[in-house]
Amino acid sequence: MATGGRRGAAAAPLLVAVAALLLGAAGHLYPGEVCPGMDIRNNLTRLHELENCSVIEGHLQILLMFKTRPEDFRDLSFPKLIMITDYLLLFRVYGLESLKDLFPNLTVIRGSRLFFNYALVIFEMVHLKELGLYNLMNITRGSVRIEKNNELCYLATIDWSRILDSVEDNYIVLNKDDNEECGDICPGTAKGKTNCPATVINGQFVERCWTHSHCQKVCPTICKSHGCTAEGLCCHSECLGNCSQPDDPTKCVACRNFYLDGRCVETCPPPYYHFQDWRCVNFSFCQDLHHKCKNSRRQGCHQYVIHNNKCIPECPSGYTMNSSNLLCTPCLGPCPKVCHLLEGEKTIDSVTSAQELRGCTVINGSLIINIRGGNNLAAELEANLGLIEEISGYLKIRRSYALVSLSFFRKLRLIRGETLEIGNYSFYALDNQNLRQLWDWSKHNLTITQGKLFFHYNPKLCLSEIHKMEEVSGTKGRQERNDIALKTNGDQASCENELLKFSYIRTSFDKI
């Protein structure tokens, strides 16, 4: 039985969820670079991206490699990797027998973001014989899940209580170790020597080791999670996991709180800001991140802002960003909400898709409305799209047979046209069989910064309504002859009103 693990408890099935942008060198404390989270699957090609990484700022997932063999891993080693800020997950990587050479110096898994409450997941690794993470000293947050690894031993010899604050939620089941077939031998045991430290858990006094050649490092209890030197002297209180010299914040392997210019500090002093819960960055760093993602459509890219001495992905609820200094300031009234469309555009074809934009005031991208039916549609669209004030790209209304009016965009005031449909149009209306009105132009103002209007096959939309939009939106004169079809717009509506004058002759039985 794995020490510190839980057996036999019912657990939810383990679901495996399925960018080499360097964020800056980590400095003297770390020998390499800070790398983003990685999802490495199918083959070993991307694994080489770990070569210079000291910190993975995010998670590391290595999974679904069915053609790899043990010899493929023999020359692979990433000794610079010290810390993973989120979680480490391995799933069905064939041929991998140990992690001792792959990650010989991995010391800390912070667990800032977890995989279903777990910071370390080893699942269905069919050839893994031992973990071998002999320098792993601290899992700051989260638990361990090690399950269905039929060859995995050296679990009962690990004292997880020396690595985690609590072992109650560890789930370590259905491994070879369960069948008591392992016969784990710690260093020196074969020669009758006791080389590794022994600890007591559940009444068992057991030597602690990761492999037959690597003991588990056990520091004096007084050192807590700070770690200790090879001689057993406690590291500085700002260290986490390990250090090369005692009581020196510049000799830590990793930091308990924050890293700044080669030393570990309790908090980031001005003019620095907390970033990702582990390091200090200056304003320029946060500003660069903001600008890199301002026009990016890459998933996970955030326009970072500053709030409460932190550089964070977005302002919290009730705050909006001051564009001059990136500071989050309290909103006066309802907060603006910028919604970034991942692929640059979004099609609204149902109430469900409209709900995804609920509360958005600025759309960074283009909207395509293609709704053919739905219950209580006008009210639903207004509830979900009615706060949109600005669209950076274009607005396209296409084959939306259920629409009679666009009044559900009740606050839309600006279409920038930074991206144009077919390279020309910022407003595009095609084949809307029941569209009769755009907006009530006596109450609604709309500016279209650039781009043209396109109207074709809107049989109940009168040309007068379209011409009014040209005047109000500032697009009059931009359109070419064929942009607004004269014969297919309003051709099934009563669009022309003329005053009919009647004269009559009164007659009676005795007068003409």
Rank of each mutant, 00 (worst) to 15 (best):
H28W: 09
L29P: 07
Y30A: 15
Y30D: 08
P31G: 15
G32A: 08
E33Q: 10
E33H: 09
E33I: 09
E33P: 13
V34Y: 08
G37I: 03
G37N: 14
D39E: 15
N43T: 07
L44D: 10
L44G: 04
L44F: 11
H48M: 08
H48L: 12
N52I: 02
S54V: 13
V55W: 03
V55F: 03
V55P: 00
E57A: 07
E57W: 03
G58R: 00
L60H: 00
I62E: 00
I62V: 14
L63Q: 07
L64K: 05
L64D: 15
M65V: 05
M65S: 12
P70L: 11
E71L: 05
D72R: 02
F73K: 04
R74T: 11
D75W: 05
F78R: 02
F78M: 08
P79M: 03
K80H: 07
K80Q: 06
L81S: 00
L81D: 00
I82H: 06
M83K: 03
M83H: 07
D86N: 10
D86T: 02
Y87Q: 00
L88E: 00
L88N: 01
L89T: 05
L89P: 00
L89V: 00
L90M: 15
Y94G: 05
K100F: 13
K100C: 10
F103T: 01
N105G: 09
T107M: 06
T107V: 06
V108S: 09
G111Q: 00
S112T: 12
S112V: 11
R113A: 03
R113C: 13
N117Y: 05
N117K: 06
Y118W: 09
A119I: 00
A119K: 01
A119R: 00
I122N: 00
E124I: 00
V126T: 11
L128T: 03
L131I: 14
L131V: 10
L131N: 02
G132A: 07
Y134G: 13
N135K: 14
L136P: 00
L136M: 01
I139G: 00
T140H: 09
T140E: 06
G142E: 01
G142T: 00
S143N: 11
R145N: 11
R145P: 01
E147G: 09
E147L: 13
N149M: 01
N150P: 13
N150T: 08
E151T: 02
E151M: 09
E151Q: 12
L152C: 15
L152Y: 01
C153W: 01
L155E: 09
L155R: 04
L155V: 15
A156S: 09
A156H: 06
T157H: 14
I158E: 04
I158P: 07
I158K: 04
R162K: 13
L164T: 09
L164W: 04
L164M: 14
D165W: 10
E168D: 05
E168G: 05
D169V: 10
D169H: 14
N170W: 03
N170K: 08
N170R: 07
I172E: 06
V173C: 15
N175R: 09
K176R: 06
K176M: 12
D177P: 15
D178C: 10
N179Y: 03
N179F: 06
E180S: 12
E180I: 03
E180L: 11
C182Q: 13
C182M: 15
G183H: 07
G183A: 08
G183S: 12
I185Q: 13
G188T: 05
T189D: 06
K191Q: 05
K191M: 12
K193G: 12
T194I: 13
N195E: 14
N195M: 10
P197G: 05
A198Y: 07
T199R: 08
T199C: 11
V200M: 11
I201G: 14
N202K: 07
N202Q: 10
G203I: 04
F205T: 14
F205W: 15
V206K: 08
E207T: 12
E207Y: 07
R208F: 15
C209E: 05
W210F: 12
T211V: 10
T211Y: 06
S213T: 05
C215F: 11
V218H: 11
V218M: 09
V218F: 12
P220N: 07
P220L: 06
P220F: 02
I222P: 08
I222V: 10
C223L: 02
C223H: 03
S225I: 12
S225W: 15
H226K: 07
G227Q: 14
T229P: 07
E231N: 04
L233M: 06
C234K: 03
C234S: 04
C234H: 01
C234E: 02
C235N: 01
C235T: 00
H236V: 02
S237P: 11
S237F: 13
C239V: 01
C239T: 00
G241D: 02
G241L: 02
N242A: 10
C243R: 00
C243M: 00
C243W: 00
P246G: 11
P246T: 02
D247H: 15
D247E: 03
D247P: 02
P249S: 06
T250Y: 04
C252Q: 00
V253M: 11
V253S: 15
A254S: 05
C255F: 00
N257D: 03
F258G: 02
F258S: 06
L260A: 08
D261N: 09
D261R: 09
D261H: 15
G262V: 02
G262M: 07
R263M: 10
V265A: 10
T267I: 03
C268V: 00
H274R: 04
H274N: 15
F275T: 03
D277A: 13
W278Q: 04
W278K: 00
C280W: 00
V281M: 02
S284V: 05
F285L: 06
C286N: 01
Q287S: 14
D288I: 06
D288P: 01
D288W: 05
L289W: 03
H290T: 12
H290P: 04
C293F: 04
K294V: 03
N295R: 14
S296H: 10
S296L: 09
R297C: 09
Q299F: 06
Q299I: 09
Y304E: 02
Y304R: 03
I306L: 04
H307S: 08
N309V: 03
K310N: 10
K310Y: 07
C311A: 05
I312S: 08
E314C: 03
E314K: 11
C315A: 06
P316N: 05
S317D: 07
G318E: 06
T320L: 06
M321E: 01
N322M: 03
N322A: 12
S324N: 09
N325C: 11
L327S: 04
L327E: 13
L327P: 00
C328L: 02
C331G: 10
C331K: 07
L332Y: 05
G333Y: 11
G333F: 04
G333L: 02
C335P: 08
P336H: 12
